[in-house]
């Protein structure tokens, strides 16, 4: 198997254009498992770890651009205040060793329905910046995932970065696993409350063929909050509203029975996580208003 090791971004784009069968690799925490199991037999690996353009994140006003090679460990250390939902999700990824190697760019590249980074990116309306020798484009996150482990990425495109607004309000992430660490999500959920835009963001993981938003739940909850004029003075939400939000989140999922859990359990868990994370965000929103 050949190993292509570009040291600049243009060289990486040239390499994938010349040989679209190359499998991009960064942390290798997902790719190497498939290669070692002989499930994946790429013609070669495109090692992106030496490409400096992918290694950093930057901030432009309220917008963040996070390079594809930024690891979970760095997101936890450097971005916890700016992207708390993603940082919380990053803390649930694998073990410390995996978090030191694994990247959000790689998570997007694999496009697994269970990818821990995906729900907070969905809730936060991120965009994925992809590029090829043909040019660069930005894919809205909820158009990025097109099937089980399939994304909108063209064969000659590479993921450069994701763009996301600095958290405009409280963000939360919670996941279910059947042990207390180092576990793949049985189901996961992310939420964001944007007090300025009067918007609710959500993301569901491991409960459909792709990560997805719970659009009806978002609209319902944003409407209820707006109706109560509660964005600026967050009085406690009625139980019925919280309950309904949970139901709508569960209804947005299309889970299956598999080795990690049943569909019925996943729906139940999602509604519980939706209610709980909403409660934590709401308390946070309340705290911010009081402060």
């Amino acid at each position: 198997m050949q190993m292509v090791r570009p040291t600049t971004w243009p060289a990486a784009l040239d390499a994938i254009a010349a040989e679209p069968g190359l499998l991009p690799i960064s942390g290798g925490t997902d790719v190497m498992v498939d290669v070692n199991f002989d499930r994946e037999r790429p013609t070669g690996l495109l090692d992106l770890t030496r490409v400096p353009e992918l290694a950093d994140w930057s901030r432009d006003g309220d917008l963040l651009r996070v390079g594809a090679n930024v690891t979970y460990a760095r997101i936890i250390d450097e971005l916890a205040a700016l992207l708390p939902g993603l940082a919380m999700a990053s803390r649930t990824v694998g073990s410390p060793q995996i978090r030191n190697r694994g990247t959000v760019g790689g998570n997007l590249g694999s496009a697994s329905p269970a990818g821990d980074a995906h729900p907070p990116l969905l809730a936060g309306l991120a965009e994925v910046e992809v590029e090829s020798v043909r040019g660069s484009r930005r894919i809205p996150i909820d158009e990025f995932f097109v099937g089980v482990k399939r994304s909108d990425l063209a064969p000659d495109e590479l993921i450069a970065a994701f763009h996301a607004p600095v958290a405009p309000g409280p963000q939360q992430f919670a996941k279910i696993g059947t042990r207390n660490a180092m576990v793949i999500a049985v189901a996961s959920f992310a939420i964001e409350l944007d007090g300025a835009a009067h918007r609710v963001g959500t993301g569901i993981g491991s409960a459909a063929a792709t990560p997805r938003r719970a659009a009806d739940a978002e609209t319902f909850l944003a409407g209820e909050i707006t109706e109560r004029a509660a964005w600026d003075s967050p009085t406690p939400l009625p139980d019925a509203v919280v309950q309904r939000f949970g139901e709508l989140v569960a209804a947005a999922a299309s889970p299956i029975d598999d080795v990690r859990g049943t569909a019925a359990y996943r729906r139940r868990a999602l509604s519980v996580l939706a209610r709980r994370t909403l409660g934590w965000c709401w308390a946070d929103l309340d705290g911010r208003q009081c402060a």
């Binding site: 919380m88 919670a174 996941k175 696993g177 207390n180 660490a181 519980v272």
Partner: peptide, 16 residues
């Protein structure tokens, strides 16, 4: 969180 059911997956802060 590390002492909670679900651990660092952040699934409960004591609820339930």
């Amino acid at each position: 969180l590390r002492s909670m059911p679900g651990g660092v997956s952040n699934s409960t802060h004591g609820e339930g």
